[in-house]
Design a protein around this nucleic acid. Structure first.
Lengths: 345, 345
DNA sequence: TATGTTGATGATAGCGCAATCATTGCACTT
DNA sequence: AAGTGCAATGATTGCGCTATCATCAACATA
């Protein structure tokens, strides 16, 4: 049983329909869309008119299959709700969007196994490039990433042995420097508050530990962590439990991110602990609130947006057969010294 | 010039390769992947072994082209950096991921024209469903959305005439209720601080205006807005300029979101204005900081995550030929009354 | 005139997969 | 014994597009 073709507005419009409507061959329509400079102006206008009036939208799957170019970049991040990653994402979308790439984004929930599954999904879309987080991939995952033969950037941390390219900064060193700063301000018993405890948080903690060990002031009972995700609420809880378990001797806290730090700060205020006189609080990431809260919060500023931009640009350069200066880029960081850790002066 | 096929590890593995390797036909391999229950166990295992050892990853484009099923859901949001949308996204990813759908996300930068372009991009991926923000689409865009013949949910606000389905809440009414609450607490001269001024913010402002007009207390000089994006910093600035332009007579401020409200609150503290005694501050969205900041911040709580979940579930129901109870869902909201607006007590 | 050279257009084939229909073998019924 | 039904597997075809090569006109060069 055939239905009339005319006016059947529910039929999907294809290249051939446009070609028929404008009296040219299909390939010419394809050219009008993909390489308009190869078609004479008169024809181009004529075809474009047909495209518009039919409301033709190309089928990207057919195009990708035929050309093996997907114009898709796969991105895997561990968490959507973490502001750190959404800012990196902004950078990625900015650059990739401008370069005509779509971004296929997956959330790995901080699990290498989930990540493997998700990266499989990404690869099944034949992406032209990949941006993934960290270096904690499963063996199997590394395997098919190596096989993929597309540019890959691992972001967030500096890796000893990246799969392909790498953009990040040294979390361990940052943790180390934070402690140095606190010691320099005259704080003596420096606690540590951490949540989620992903690899990058662990590195910060190692830096913290190292710095304190060097001056003989490391005390593991000053460390309070939880595998739960970070939040302001959790920060408050951890701060309370640090105070309780140490009988309040701690006079500074390095919080592994700003949510925790804000939670600790607000909780300290409620406990009538004077920040920074009796307690220093330092965060990490330098979110906007750090600058404006009272007292303003010392934090480690890292170029999240810039990291997304950099990673994207590297991929695009490779895709355009341009060389990248270096396969490994250290974005650095900066400790923003603010009121919450300045007892001097 | 032909290269040997053997061991050429750079050749992409296809269904046929797997079929050859496991001694079955291509279609059987396809079944092992897509409808394993239709293949006998022995064959299934045999084929799976070949899949694993070859590291076969299906080509989604070919699959989509042949089956006209993409397993892709398109999502368009106005901003990646706004926590409001990332929480909605979380809900979407949660549900869509579990149901085996990929999410293709685009950022429209609050521009209907950009949105039109982006939705075009989405449609070229033949998504099976679409989640888009608000009702401000261009005529052309509405046109091809109607033509698309896939389930579409417009989220965030309640629309008079949705394209297909709609999940949101009444921003105007929420603004109205906020003012009622402030009046009930004895505040008299209520200011308004807004940024970005997208359609939903405008609706909140209309509610604010209506409530004040009803009691004869509307004064348009109490309104300070900017087209800039919201941020804590901008909130502080707007608060300062409201105070300056009204000579400090305002005794309450309705901030159109929590970033602005926090900025206003921190700025008030710096100006030594006592919140809530001399100044009430109310935000919108109820982000986590609202509950923990000192004084805690009154805000309008809306189920962002739930909205993402709901929209996703509706699409999935339609895709599974189940009916949805209603094409239009009001998620409601709740004013969280906290210290920043409670002078009484 | 013969010989390129260039630019614009078209015909054909095939990308990798799944829909569709066909085939086979086997258990069960009458 | 013949027929019926069903589960498991395969052969063929085409999804919508682009790569590739072919064609043809227009013009330049010697």
């Amino acid at each position: 049983m055939k239905t009339a073709k005319k006016r059947s507005s529910d039929k999907k419009i294809t290249l051939v329909d446009v070609a028929d409507a404008s009296g040219v061959s299909a390939i010419t329509v394809s050219r009008v869309i993909n390489q308009p400079e190869k078609v004479s102006e008169s024809l181009r206008i004529q075809v474009q008119k047909a495209i518009d009036s039919l409301g033709y939208i190309p089928n990207q799957h057919a195009s990708s299959l035929a050309s093996s170019k997907s114009k898709v970049i796969g991105v895997a991040i561990p968490s959507l709700s973490n502001i750190v990653f959404t800012e990196v994402l902004r950078g990625i979308y900015e650059v990739m969007g401008a370069a005509g790439y779509k971004v296929l984004l997956v959330d790995t929930h901080y699990s290498p196994l989930e990540e493997e599954k998700m990266i499989r999904t990404l690869l099944s879309q034949s992406p032209e490039g990949l941006i993934i987080t960290g270096g904690d991939q499963t063996k199997a995952c590394q395997n098919f990433l190596h096989k993929a033969r597309i540019p890959i950037v691992q972001i967030m941390e500096l890796l000893a042995d990246p799969i392909d390219m790498n953009v990040g900064f040294a979390h361990g060193r940052a943790g180390f420097d934070v402690v140095k700063h606190l010691l320099g301000q005259g704080y003596e018993r420096i606690g540590f508050i951490g949540a989620r405890m992903d690899p990058r948080v662990q590195q910060r903690m190692q830096g913290y530990k190292l710095a304190l060990e060097q001056v003989g002031k490391f005390d593991k009972s000053y460390i309070v962590t939880t595998p739960e995700p970070s939040s302001i609420g959790v920060g408050g809880e951890l701060f309370k439990s640090l105070m309780a378990s140490t009988n309040g001797v701690v006079d500074a806290v390095f919080c592994v991110n700003d949510d925790l730090a804000l939670g600790a700060l607000f909780e300290a205020q409620r406990m009538n602990i004077n920040v920074p006189q009796d307690m220093a609080i330092c965060g990490f990431n330098d979110i906007e609130a750090a600058e404006y809260v009272n007292p303003s919060l010392t934090s480690v500023s890292v170029g999240r947006y810039e990291m997304g931009v950099k990673a994207s640009e590297m991929i695009i350069r490779v895709l355009n057969d341009k060389s990248v200066e270096s396969k490994k880029v250290d974005m650095g960081y900066e400790i923003k010294k603010r009121a919450s850790t300045s007892r001097l002066k």
